[in-house]
Design a protein around this nucleic acid. Structure first.
Lengths: 205, 205
DNA sequence: TTTCGACTGGACTTGCCGGTCCAAATTTAT
DNA sequence: ATAAATTTGGACCGGCAAGTCCAGTCGAAA
């Protein structure tokens, strides 16, 4: 399974992934052909299949993994340090900045609807991304609970799930309509929900 | 532009749209070929291009419009009558039911990432869908504000945008991971945010 | 320096799929 | 009834893009 790659080889392999990812970000998954990648990265057909014997599908999966990592690392170090309200706000801003820049296609969205049903591999990549993402948010919630800044009765995973859903939806809407007000609104409401939990009268009808 | 269609003709046209929509729901946009639609609907190539001179793209756009209408009409009458807390809960349940059933691909998501960048038409369809959707939610918020059930200082459009983002994200996550807990969480938190607004101390630091 | 395996180049094959075309059937209008 | 228009059938075309193949080159170890 794990092939032995010389430094030169793995450099080429990485160059292919980088180029494919860029190509996809610019033109979308569907419009990206192997020849496009080949042209952009200055490689030949045989190299593509040498490094990705599974062909297009395997390359796409590698790109998905690469992009999934980027999604989280682009939010660091903020995402891992949600231990004060200013930190939460800073994270919010970083997120909005990131998706304000990324005007086009969310590679992962596209990849899912492209490979989604057919390959379980793509699903696994996305699922793991979301799990880690939600886990980091939930950790932040618990940290704040530890400081008495958030109502301890609040279910951290549940709140994190809702916030994550809002983020995803905000991004999707951003991609379809071009407006990112929804992403901002979702983050604002989500964070305010946490913030206000302390001040809320225990209703629980 | 508007062609004259005999009843028979428009029946065939509709049959094609229905069939294409079903095919797409089952196998995704990318995997659906004109021959698949042809086979499923018992039509011939020439009919497809007779009724959709713009070819595949025009057909896909028609399907998008059809599905967009379905999205909203599937939420009626609940979506238009968000005038009491039980009504909100009922709407919530209807939504969850709908997407619990729709296991596969959200045609609109897929269509956007497929036609998205290329055709402004597809964007327009999605944008209008989201606008109407958000408008209905915001109308419900205002109705509740009129009854004193929601803090009148709360921005109805902002809250509706956040809720809509949560819904979209919940659906996306549902499609990628198969789990619909996020959709539930987003709706719960979004509605609770409205509900609790009355009880919240005016912080506004 | 020779040799072996990893790496590269690019021509070629293959199948698919969107789109065209024209002739036949059927319906509508007069 | 008959002409005109709409609807239908399906063979055919052309291009594109994934994947194959083999002939080479390069680099490191013996």
């Amino acid at each position: 399974m794990t092939r032995e790659l010389t430094p030169k080889g793995s450099a080429t392999r990485q160059r292919i992934i980088d180029g494919a990812a860029a190509e996809i970000r610019e033109h979308g998954v569907a419009a990206t052909t192997l020849d496009d990648v080949r042209r952009r990265t200055g490689t030949s057909k045989s190299q593509l299949f040498h490094y990705f014997p599974g062909g297009r599908e395997e390359l796409l999966l590698a790109v998905a993994r690469y992009e999934a990592d980027r999604v989280l690392s682009d939010q660091q170090p903020q995402l891992s340090g949600l231990t004060s309200w200013p930190a939460w706000e800073e994270w919010r801003d970083v997120l909005i900045q990131r998706y304000r820049r990324q005007a086009w296609d969310c590679p992962l969205d596209a990849l899912i609807s492209q490979l989604g049903p057919s390959t379980p591999g793509a699903r696994a990549v996305v699922t793991e991304l979301l799990n880690r993402w939600q886990g980091d948010i939930a950790a932040g919630v618990r940290a704040m609970q530890g400081q008495g800044e958030i109502d301890p009765r609040l279910d951290a995973e549940h709140a994190a799930a809702a916030l994550l859903a809002g983020i995803q939806g905000g991004i999707v809407i951003r991609l379809s309509t071009g407006r990112f007000t929804h992403l901002e609104a979702a983050l604002d409401v989500g964070i305010q929900h946490l913030r206000a939990s302390r001040d809320r009268h225990p209703v629980d009808h």
